[in-house]
């Protein structure tokens, strides 16, 4: 399980474009492609190479009416998916 002190970094080899209400990730090679819904896009936009996961979690709780416990579980699941797909990686933990 990733620590809430980890700092996620965007993988620049993806072209990320907002098409209507979706955020689309085009992979650098091949036909790989992923889409994010509104909440996914919100989390993506908070990943700036500086914020730690617990700070991103605070942003989510501020923006959406959701308990911190549920938001944390969903965020970690989402972050884990992004990492698995190679869309993000992590800076060293503090």
């Amino acid at each position: 399980m990733v620590s809430l002190n980890a700092i996620p970094l965007r993988n620049d080899s993806f072209a990320v474009r907002e098409i209507g209400e979706e955020t689309v990730f085009f992979a650098d090679k091949g036909d790989e492609l992923h889409t994010l819904n509104e909440i996914g896009a919100f989390i993506w936009n908070t990943i700036d190479g500086k914020r730690m996961l617990h700070e991103i979690l605070d942003c989510i709780v501020d923006e959406y009416e959701v308990s911190k416990e549920i938001a944390e579980k969903d965020m970690l699941h989402f972050i884990s998916e992004l990492e698995t797909k190679g869309i993000i990686n992590f800076k060293q933990e503090k």
Partner: peptide
């Protein structure tokens, strides 16, 4: 496929 869906979005929105 997801790619077809995305391409269709581009086409419909003339992006």
């Amino acid at each position: 496929s997801l790619r077809d869906e995305v391409n269709l979005k581009y086409f419909r929105a003339q992006i």
